[in-house]
Amino acid sequence: MTTREIMYREAIRDAQREEMLRDPTVFLIGEDLRDPWGGTYKATQNLSTEFGNERVLNTPICEETIIGASLGAALTGLRPVAELMYFDFVMRSMDAVVNQVAKVRYMSGGQVKVPLVIRTQGGGGRSSAAQHGNSLEAWICHVPGLFVAMPSTPYDAKGLLKTAIRMDDPVFFIEHKLLYMTKGPVPDEEYTIPFGVADVKRKGDDVTIVATSRMVLFALEAAAELEKEGISAEVIDPRTLVPLDEATILESVHKTNRLVVVNEGVERCGWAAEVAALVQKKGFGDLDAPIERVCTRNVPLPFQPDLENYVLPSVADIVRAAKYTLGKVE
């Protein structure tokens, strides 16, 4: 199989392009998607040039209508892929996301399918301050009726997005602003990745680190640090948060007996707590230490870089947490 190195944002773009070629009912809708702008993070670059302005629809600044209208289109025979420029602006569309998109199938007694993908990007690390750096994955996971993907590599991003576009249920697809320029190998041949299947990004025996999105990169760095100290860490990327591949996580903990969960949302009521709850229930007998969580501190994101770094999870925090589970921190 031949592969090419491409950027994450190209993977997102290519997935949309391939699905638009494959299925004429797929269309893109969102703010500033068209060329020459091509999306604020360039994830739709060249698509309006190739497919025309009707299939790559620029909207006014109206997030609730973007999602509500996407739902209307999804209910009536189309397959929209909506982009909300920042996770922070998803808040403007929360009624559409939570009360409409996620529930219409259920409320109608299963009458309809909702083939709708909502793409957005979140995350800090760019001093974008309190209204442009939120990681609100827990909010979305909390809503029954949505599937949630949060890929960390170009390969996963492309394969999962293609799957998402073909699914008949609404998918909330979370990208990260600091992953768009990262590169990775992607096969030339067509492929898709199923939801609910984690990927073990690094094998290890002493401690399991479950991480999402950009935090997978941090976890891998942490694992390399730990290796220098003779600690072998296994890094698991669930890739989809809903549904969650419980088996892969539980098997790993069965082997390592220790767990660190890392995600970029704030700690309180966060996604890591959900994983911790799962493992203490189903893997209680396997645990040799309390489960550690490494998340963003319970404050809004500050602007200044030192403050921001203090608040966000760091590689050092993950290393420390892993050593903590091994009793190696005084």
Partner: peptide
């Protein structure tokens, strides 16, 4: 240093805030 360019606010001048969220 909490706000930055997009969030300049000064309640002593009755500047209730710039804003990162449109509208």
């Amino acid at each position: 240093a909490k706000g930055g360019s997009m969030h300049i606010a000064d309640f002593s001048q009755n500047v209730l805030g710039a804003n990162g969220i449109v509208a």
